[in-house]
């Protein structure tokens, strides 16, 4: 397995690795400056390992969709390069299923006819098997019963599922899903997540962009974070949240006393915050056992109303990295 591009000092101009061992997506210095000078994507170095479920996170307007459009060859980069599956774009695209900025179909055609239309556009798709493949794709997203219905009459959730079916028309090695749960009700969202897990279980790499943190935390093995067109972090979910220390949180009316005890124990990064009906003191847990901290607090007559160990969530990491809140409740 080639390790991914980001060994320190890897020259940004080197050609992306090719062949089946290449990462599913590699970008080097990818930049898009739109007319008018607005930089949508700024020297992006992204590496998506094969077989991963890769969350591409960032607030709305941070350059996620522009990046995806460049990856799919819809938008020409101003500078930099990119490769999908280590292949030239035209050879890679038939192996890539994509959902970009919501579903788009011919309203006067049935769901089935729509899928046939997009299948006809793929020069590698065998016409002989189109009926079977369209049937399987519709079955996979649960639209078999609505196959003959005009797209015009589809509900929002059905439209989204049809778009996913279109992305599954052939044998795919990479699935690029841009905000796949946008506009779906909670039931639809669950269905899409289950589908993504199922697809990933078959060995397909899934690259999913989202502004919803919970979504990425639940589905993904890896993630990257965008902020104002720049990549601010990427790695496994574990390594991303591993960057932040585990903290202990004590709820008490006597914050000053608690701070003295924690300092005496040698805990770093002590903070005092207000909570409803009192104050809370937090500190980095370090190697300390929480029960010893509790004993020390009680021994020093600090009134303890609550004590908890707080593991860092992705949310803390991302808020720290992007400097703004995510729409976490979705």
């Amino acid at each position: 397995m080639t390790t991914v591009t980001h060994e320190a000092g890897a020259p940004s101009g080197a050609a992306p690795p090719s062949g089946p061992a290449a990462p599913a997506i590699v970008t080097r210095g990818l930049t898009k400056r739109f007319r008018g000078g607005q930089v949508a994507v700024d020297t992006l170095d992204l590496s998506v390992p094969r077989g991963s479920v890769f969350g591409f996170l960032g607030p709305n307007g941070s350059g996620k969709t522009t990046t995806i459009r460049m990856l799919l060859g819809l938008v020409a980069p101003t500078s930099g390069e990119h490769a999908l599956l280590g292949l030239p774009l035209a050879a890679a695209l038939p192996r890539v299923g994509a959902l970009v900025e919501g579903p788009a179909f011919y309203p006067y055609l049935s769901g089935e006819a729509n899928l046939r239309r997009f299948d006809a556009a793929d020069p590698t798709a065998p016409a002989a098997t189109v009926r079977r493949r369209v049937g399987e794709a519709l079955d996979r997203v649960g639209l078999t019963a609505a196959a003959g219905k005009r797209y015009r009459n589809y509900s929002l959730g059905m439209r989204q599922r049809l778009a996913i079916a279109a992305a599954l028309l052939g044998p795919r090695e990479l699935l690029v899903l841009d905000e796949p749960t946008n506009g779906l009700d909670p039931q639809g969202t669950r269905e899409v997540r289950a589908l993504v897990k199922e697809i990933a279980a078959d060995g397909t790499t899934v690259f999913v962009s989202s502004h919803l943190l919970a979504e990425v935390e639940q589905m993904c093995t890896h993630a990257a974070v965008m902020r104002a067109g720049k990549l601010v972090a990427q790695g496994t979910i574990a390594s991303l949240s591993g960057g932040q220390p585990v903290r202990v949180r004590i709820e008490t009316p006597d914050a000053a006393a608690a701070v003295r005890v924690l300092a005496a124990l040698g805990l770093a990064g002590v903070h005092i915050g207000a909570v409803e009906g009192g104050t809370e003191v937090t500190a980095e847990l370090g190697g300390h056992a929480p029960e010893r901290i509790n004993a020390a607090l009680v021994g020093a007559d600090v009134p303890v109303r609550g004590l908890a160990v707080v593991r860092p969530s992705l949310e803390d990491v991302f808020v720290g990295l992007t400097g703004e809140g995510f729409d976490v409740d979705g």
Partner: peptide, 16 residues
């Protein structure tokens, strides 16, 4: 940006 690159890279699928 060059954040710890993980030991958990999943092997390329057989489809490749």
């Amino acid at each position: 940006r060059r954040a710890p690159e993980p030991a958990t890279i999943v092997e390329a699928g057989p489809s490749a």
